[in-house]
């Protein structure tokens, strides 16, 4: 039972990582930008959600609003910050991204105060289905379900829809795609909207789970997201998924069995170093 609970705790954490890392890997696949500021959209989803919920909106609507705002802000940031830098070397966009994260984080702090915000009512967190001794609350279930749905949805979208085909064509060869009438610009905007929506939803759910929305809440997740993206093989969507779940479970067991040796946050980077040394193409088979 204990191991089942550890495993579940790890999978929930992994689902959260997956939702963050998917966006990172999508954007990297398209633009070759390491989008560090992704963390800020995670936080943004949380803040919009908590403000909406505390002003009387039902939790579901608050979640939708958080996702919507994040999904709008993502393409906006792409247009204002990244687009002008696309023909510069990749580290320019990376530096801009780090700057953007710091600016947004301190923006949240200035706007909403240093203490962080909590949900006035948090019913999803304190209730859950009875699973015979295993306590799971609705927030944890929602995190797991969202990750599964997001990944399945992305898969269907990429294979089965026109926009998905355009997307894959743009990833493979932007110029060729353009000559077939695909607008790479629209694909990029779509990627940022999707990635930011996922981050916003993850931020909202994690906010419920911690009952605390803080200016810097996305940082660790984002840095780990980067490690996951590398572990999964840069730009590789299924690889990213497996790496997320693996890391979540490794951390869950590591917190209990390795805590005298390795800090939990060090586990991700320890695995990262190991993988870079022995399998630099990532854990999954190369594309």
């Amino acid at each position: 039972m204990f191991y089942v609970e550890l495993l579940i705790a790890g999978l929930v954490q992994g689902a959260m990582y997956a939702m963050m890392a998917l966006g990172l890997t999508l954007i990297y696949g398209l633009l070759r930008i390491l989008h560090i500021a992704h963390a800020a959209f995670f936080t943004l989803g949380g803040y919009v959600g908590v403000l909406a919920a505390n002003s009387g909106l039902p939790l579901g609507a608050a979640a939708a609003l958080g996702v919507l705002v994040a999904a709008t802000a993502g393409p906006l940031v792409y247009g204002t910050v990244y687009r002008p830098l696309l023909d510069k070397p990749p580290y320019v966009a990376l530096i801009a991204s780090i700057g953007l994260l710091i600016a947004m984080e301190d923006g949240f702090r200035l706007l909403f105060g240093p203490y962080g915000l909590s949900f006035a009512e948090n019913p999803w967190f304190v209730t859950g289905p009875d699973l015979g001794g295993i306590f799971l609350n609705w927030v944890q279930i929602a995190l797991g379900l969202s990750a599964v749905l997001a990944i399945a949805g992305l898969g269907l979208f990429a294979v089965g829809s026109r926009a998905g085909v355009a997307w894959r064509a743009t990833v493979d060869d932007p110029e060729m795609a353009m000559s077939f009438g695909v607008s790479p610009e629209r694909v990029r905007l779509l990627a940022f909207a999707l990635a930011s929506a996922l981050a916003g939803l993850a931020g909202f759910l994690v906010g419920l789970l911690n009952n605390l929305i803080e200016p810097g809440m996305g940082n660790i997740t984002s840095y780990k997201g980067l490690a996951i993206v590398v572990l999964g093989g840069l730009g590789n969507v299924p690889g990213t998924l497996w790496a997320s779940l693996l890391l979540g479970v490794a951390e869950s067991f590591g917190t209990i069995y390795l805590d005298k040796i390795l800090d939990r946050d060090a586990i991700a980077f320890f695995i990262l170093v190991a993988v870079l040394m022995w399998r630099p193409q990532g854990l999954a088979r190369g594309r």
Binding site: L6, E251, T255, D259
Partner: peptide
């Protein structure tokens, strides 16, 4: 005894162990 870092907000593994 379990330890955690200052950035930690997710304690699922510790909660499971404390229950045991």
């Amino acid at each position: 005894e379990y330890t955690y870092g200052i950035k930690e907000r997710q304690f699922g593994a510790i909660v499971a162990s404390v229950k045991r």
